[in-house]
Design a protein around this nucleic acid. Structure first.
Ligand code: FES
Ligand code: FES
Lengths: 142, 142
DNA sequence: AGGGTAAAGGATAATTTTGTCTTTTATTAT
DNA sequence: ATAATAAAAGACAAAATTATCCTTTACCCT
């Protein structure tokens, strides 16, 4: 698995929220969990984290829920870093204490360029970009 | 994490075994665990799996241990598949039930080429290739 | 002000992964 | 044959991840 289950839910939820919400039209956990087919309470926990890290916003009370202010400034890598940290991009794939160019494991040279490519792609990909085709049923969240 | 802890140990152990053993000079779990800095018994379990899947060989009794017949025919991807399966290469990174080109998630198009690249690199990389530089302390296993 | 709504937060539980320990089995050397 | 050795196998334990439930807090509407 490239991402943890939590991170998978986080990304799918964020894309849904970005696509369906605005400051004046928030979405509830129930809606989100239904839309992305995820466990309701667990999803709540994860969104709580994203909210604390200022990636999404939330408001309690009636007509409360989750929403995103400006979805074009949130990138995929922000979500990944918020949930899984950046060990996918920086720590040794073979589990050596430290991944550096000085003391490398036998797959470092192969992995490093691919990992850089991953970082670049995830850094380029904004939520805004992703929601477009989801609305036209070109991409799916469940 | 790209690989499970088990898979990390498996790869490091396999490289060590390939480099240090032959049919006439097997290595014990104790030696392996020491060389790659891994929990002894847990490593034993993992090597048992590799052994059952014919990736490495083992023999009990005095002067028994683990060894590899022809290390040039074992590729990194074989070890990964034996321990983690091939979900890293084939299942949806966002956790959709199925990853296919027909019903794709919003990151499929970015991920697919990178994942193919990963598959290619791991398929090319033989144990034999990896041990060379380990012996000259260019690469490390702990 | 007060009642209803929805996220936040905390406690708890199930599951999976990781790790340890002990017994059994196979092999070798004496 | 017997004793010593080393992996195989199974039982058990700890930790992390995933998931559920319940209470509290904030917010809105009447
Ligand atoms: S040292 Fe292993 S990936 Fe860099
Ligand atoms: S559908 Fe998600 S990676 Fe292919």
């Amino acid at each position: 698995m490239m991402f943890s289950k939590s991170c998978e839910y986080a990304i799918r939820a964020a894309v849904y929220i970005a696509g369906e919400s605005s400051i004046s039209n928030k979405v509830s956990i129930v809606q989100i969990a239904h839309a992305i087919d995820s466990p309701k309470h667990f999803t709540g926990k994860i969104l709580q984290t994203l909210s604390r890290k200022k990636i999404i916003s939330s408001l309690r009370g009636p007509h409360g829920g989750f929403y995103i202010d400006n979805d074009s400034s949130v990138f995929l890598i922000d979500i990944i870093r918020a949930i899984d940290g950046d060990e996918l991009f920086t720590s040794c794939v073979l589990g050596l204490k430290k991944c550096s160019d000085i003391k490398t494991c036998p797959v470092h040279e192969q992995i490093q360029p691919i990992r850089n490519q991953l970082t670049i792609e995830f850094s380029k990909k904004s939520l805004n970009e992703m929601i477009l085709d989801v609305k036209q049923n070109k991409y799916f969240l469940k």
